[in-house]
Amino acid sequence: MKTLPLIATLLLATVTIAPGARAAEAASLTVTFKGLTARSGSILFTVVNSEDAYNDKARAVTQAILPANADTVSQTFTGLAPGRYAIKAFHDVNGDGKMGMNPFGMPTEPFAFSNKAVASMGPPNWEAAAFELKAGENIRSIDID
């Protein structure tokens, strides 16, 4: 089989973050985005496991791009360490790689957070968006659009 290009690797259903982690301790996370109305562009999302990373002050666990080509799209990550995690996502409808803003700084593209945390005149804080990632399989569903 020919080697897949890097972008296709990212788009594979399963991404292994830490292939060396012991299976008994590792967690997997399936992130599912539901309710997509615009069928163009991609969902760009970030998975973090600390408040600092949530506030862009430390590195994310991973960042991913999912083409928005169905009502529901998902991606699975394996080899994660259990702990507290959060997900921040936006739907890059026009495919320009960044969150659209109107002239008054208001986002023009849909965005969403894990744990059903809602924006309330600003993004929800880490406490609202964080969830427990346990050993084994975890599925987190996010309504977007």
């Binding site: 659209g100 109107n102 002239p103 008054f104 208001m106 023009t108």
Partner: peptide, 17 residues
């Protein structure tokens, strides 16, 4: 019939203005 169609985005880059 006064049914609601939805929010009018007059131009994509001006949504919510």
């Amino acid at each position: 019939d006064l049914s609601t169609t939805g929010i009018k985005t007059l131009r994509d880059d001006l949504a919510h203005v």
